[in-house]
């Protein structure tokens, strides 16, 4: 099983390094059915995000941006169209394969942090590695390095309840980074933070971008979105605009 995971990981990384886009959506449609009522959340989206890009996806509620984020995050599959993540077609994978893909390719940062309150920062961060059979010693070292990277090297033993909101979100960023994913997917990462912590976390994302990470940020705040280099506006299940911000 571990070998299989590794095989997946290496293939993916190699493909991404050779210039395939990290995200490639072609004619993406998602239809929800509730009884006889159909609702088209995505109505044909084409989107390419290259290696190393920092993209903000914006849109009002009901625009389909949450659905888009679920699709990009492999938490859900398309009704129609193609989705390639780091070169691999994953539009019609089953639950177990999706779990593998999420584990290997994607680092999530959520609005509510979603840290496990009973576990120390260290053990929270090592969770993704546990699901891919990394031996304890290596796991601990990588988790410690990730926490060091987000500036919490001295808080490894603290539980989430003993950390401020900003620190908790940094632990979550460390957890997203620890597995060396192709894509960092942040869903309203500053939605629950005060302005100082917001600045901290966004600063951290900026740094990660400068180091070559691919980041997709979902937000409804323009201030936050402006940290990205490219802003994609979604409305009524379609991409309304896609602009590169010049600095």
């Amino acid at each position: 099983m571990a070998d299989l995971f590794d095989a997946f990981a290496s293939t993916g990384t190699v493909l991404a390094e050779h210039g395939s886009p990290v995200i490639e959506l072609v004619g993406a449609r998602k239809t929800y059915r509730t009884g006889s009522i159909e609702f088209e959340a995505l109505r044909g989206i084409d989107l390419r995000i290259e290696q190393g890009e920092y993209v903000a996806i914006m849109g009002p509620s009901g625009s389909g941006k949450s659905t888009l984020m679920n699709i990009i995050g492999c938490l859900d599959t398309l009704t129609e169209g193609d989705y390639r993540l780091a070169g691999d077609d994953i539009a019609e994978l089953d639950e177990i394969d999706l779990a593998q893909i999420r584990n290997l390719r994607i680092g999530f940062v959520f609005q509510q942090f979603h840290l496990l309150p009973a576990l120390s920062a260290w053990r929270n961060v090592e969770l993704p590695l546990m699901y891919r059979q990394v031996p304890v010693g290596e796991r601990r070292a990588r988790a410690a390095a990730a926490l060091e990277r987000v500036g919490l090297g001295d808080r490894v033993a603290n539980r989430p309840g003993e950390l401020s909101g900003g620190q908790q979100q940094r632990v979550a960023v460390a957890r997203a980074l620890v597995g060396e994913p192709d894509l960092l997917l942040a869903d309203e990462p500053t939605g629950n933070l005060d302005s100082q912590s917001t600045a901290d976390v966004l600063g951290l994302l900026d740094e990660l971008h400068q180091q070559g990470r691919t980041i997709v940020l979902i937000t409804h705040e323009l201030e936050v979105a402006q940290h990205a280099r490219r802003i994609v506006w979604v409305r009524d299940g379609l991409i309304q605009s896609d602009e590169v911000i010049d600095r």
Partner: peptide
Amino acid sequence: TREIGLRKALGAPPWA
């Protein structure tokens, strides 16, 4: 439920 959701998002397969 949220813990389960998180573990799944982080890549825990159903059997785990």
